[in-house]
């Protein structure tokens, strides 16, 4: 069509307007169309109302502190988590690992995630140190699991938790693969991704997560970074804390005290 017009004489008194080429027209149309789509997509129906009765999620930002030097490997936390959250058999939202280390060799075990505690162990080498490391979802700030979710089922809340919307989850398992800490699994009953929620149904009522509630040694502590005098906040501010796999830049919000270099 563009060729047929070019040789026609311009009848109008003003100079003939530059004919709009097909390519230019289509690109403009696409741009306009794209703009309309962005506008439509960016105009969500706003959700209202508090997250829970008398709970303002903008007033909290949680963090978790694990003092590995105190852990005795009793597994109370793993049992409490299972009871509190109905975690399916053979899967764990939190688990405890045992490291038995010598300069030459090391051995890591976590029988049933530490659910029944730990048995005595014989290693083929003479250990020079040994310790327990409780693990769980780190509720990372820069979280790979949320980034890969194709349906927006995994998300990070304003009070600093990473949660999974089981209603939206399609069970593709991308997040299970993406999490470098092995914190997620696909539930055998619901076939959706499941993981630690820091007991959101408890913390929104002012209770501690179940694992923190039962830990007899004070290894596990839960705190609120928005509270000036919070012991966990102060410990993170003043203590020498580390996180798991810091080179991945996931910014975990579970902080560790006394973490050994053997731990990954």
């Amino acid at each position: 069509m563009d060729e047929t017009q070019s040789d026609a004489p311009a009848p109008a008194p003003q100079p003939a307007p530059e004919p709009v080429g097909r390519r230019e027209f289509l690109s403009n149309a696409l741009r306009l169309g794209g703009g309309v789509l962005v506008f439509l997509a960016g105009a969500p129906a706003l959700g209202e109302g508090p997250v829970a009765e008398g709970y303002d999620w903008t007033q909290h930002r949680y963090a978790y502190l694990i003092d590995t030097e105190k852990c005795i490997g009793c597994g109370s936390c793993v049992r409490a988590c299972k009871a509190e959250n109905g975690v399916p058999d053979g899967f764990f939202r939190t688990w405890v690992e045992r490291y038995v280390v010598s300069p030459e060799a090391s051995h890591v075990d976590s029988p049933k995630g530490g659910l029944d505690g730990f048995p005595p162990i014989q290693t083929p080498f003479t250990p020079t140190k040994s310790f327990f490391v409780p693990k769980m979802c780190n509720h990372c700030k820069e979280t790979p699991c949320v980034q890969v979710c194709p349906v927006g089922a995994s998300y990070r809340t304003q009070d600093g938790l990473v949660l999974v919307d089981a209603e939206r989850c399609i069970g593709c398992g991308y997040c299970v693969q993406a999490c470098p800490y092995g914190s997620r699994f696909l539930s055998p009953t619901t076939h959706t991704a499941e993981k630690c929620t820091w007991c959101y149904h408890r913390v929104t009522k002012g209770l501690k997560p179940a694992c923190v509630e039962v830990c007899p040694t004070g290894t596990r502590q839960f705190g609120d970074m928005r509270r000036e005098d919070d012991p966990v906040r102060l410990a993170i501010a003043h203590g020498r804390v580390s996180v798991l796999q810091p080179h991945l830049l996931t910014e975990p919000q579970c902080f560790y005290l006394g973490l050994d270099k053997e731990v990954r």
């Binding site: 997250v51 829970a52 959250n85 809340t157 949660l163 959101y200 179940a210």
Partner: peptide
């Protein structure tokens, strides 16, 4: 879902 998670079950402990 945030509110749903907050009310997912009564606290056990």
């Amino acid at each position: 879902n945030v509110a749903e998670q907050a009310a997912i079950r009564p606290p056990q402990h």
